[in-house]
């Protein structure tokens, strides 16, 4: 019979780690999406001298490896005399990282809405804001959704890197178990992998369902 030293308690420990993974993902994606919308719309609609500097800063977040960003932020915050837990730093860095990618998705989505459609909206007397809310965002959303789902799943997996600065999330929890039960790394990692999958799968399915529903209208 299959014999393992992994107890229910250990499993619970893993699930707690998964809870942190979920929480960090949720905060990072929520914050990153909000900031990404602001940056993305700004970049799509504002003149070059506004959009170019924002684009430059966001490019830094997109091109420096996340691990380096985490370590640098985690070290710089105490140097600047501020205090933040590794959890806070993780959420902050991941949210900025997410916003950098999300802003590109939003910018692309907004620019993909035909100028002629927007003119039609404005010609009916809709204000810039109403045009954005009623026409541009709903249409851009359809274009953005697949990329945004991909981003969310990516960020979820990227949270594994916050283990490096001491947050005990899913990956770190499994590593702790592995140091105790050194002869069962594959089994423990498989469980962790399964949990990652169980978190991702519903998100991916939800995205696919929304896409299908929207396509039916076209």
């Amino acid at each position: 019979m299959f014999d393992t030293a992994v107890s229910l308690n250990d499993l619970w420990f893993l699930l707690q780690g998964a809870g942190w993974t979920l929480l960090i993902t949720a905060i990072a994606v929520a914050g990153g999406t909000f900031l990404g919308m602001v940056f993305g719309v700004t970049r799509a609609t504002m003149p070059v001298w506004v959009s170019l500097p924002i684009g430059f800063v966001l490019d830094i977040f997109r091109s420096v490896p996340l691990l380096i960003q985490l370590v640098l932020f985690n070290s710089f915050i105490p140097i600047m005399g501020l205090r933040a837990s590794p959890f806070t730093v993780s959420c902050l860095v991941l949210a900025l990282y997410t916003s950098a990618y999300c802003s590109e998705i939003v910018r692309g989505g907004v620019l993909a809405v035909p100028q002629t459609t927007r003119r039609a909206a404005r010609s009916l007397g809709l204000t810039w804001g109403q045009d954005m809310r009623e026409i541009v965002f709903p249409l851009a959303l359809r274009i953005m959704l697949p990329s945004w789902i991909g981003l969310t799943l990516g960020v979820m997996k990227d949270t594994a890197l916050v283990a490096w600065i001491g947050v005990i999330e899913l990956l770190k929890s499994s590593q702790i178990l592995i140091t105790r039960m050194a002869n069962e790394p594959l089994f423990i990692l498989s469980i962790a992998g399964l949990i990652y999958f169980l978190i991702s799968f519903p998100i991916a399915r939800l995205g696919a369902r929304l896409e299908k529903k929207w396509r039916e209208n076209d």
Binding site: T116, A120, S123, G125, L139
Partner: peptide, 20 residues
């Protein structure tokens, strides 16, 4: 302009329906 435009309807070559 938003007020003015209520009074002037315009129809374009590309019909520009709001597809959603």
């Amino acid at each position: 302009l938003n007020k003015l435009r209520r009074n002037i309807g315009i129809v374009f070559q590309q019909w520009n329906a709001f597809p959603h």
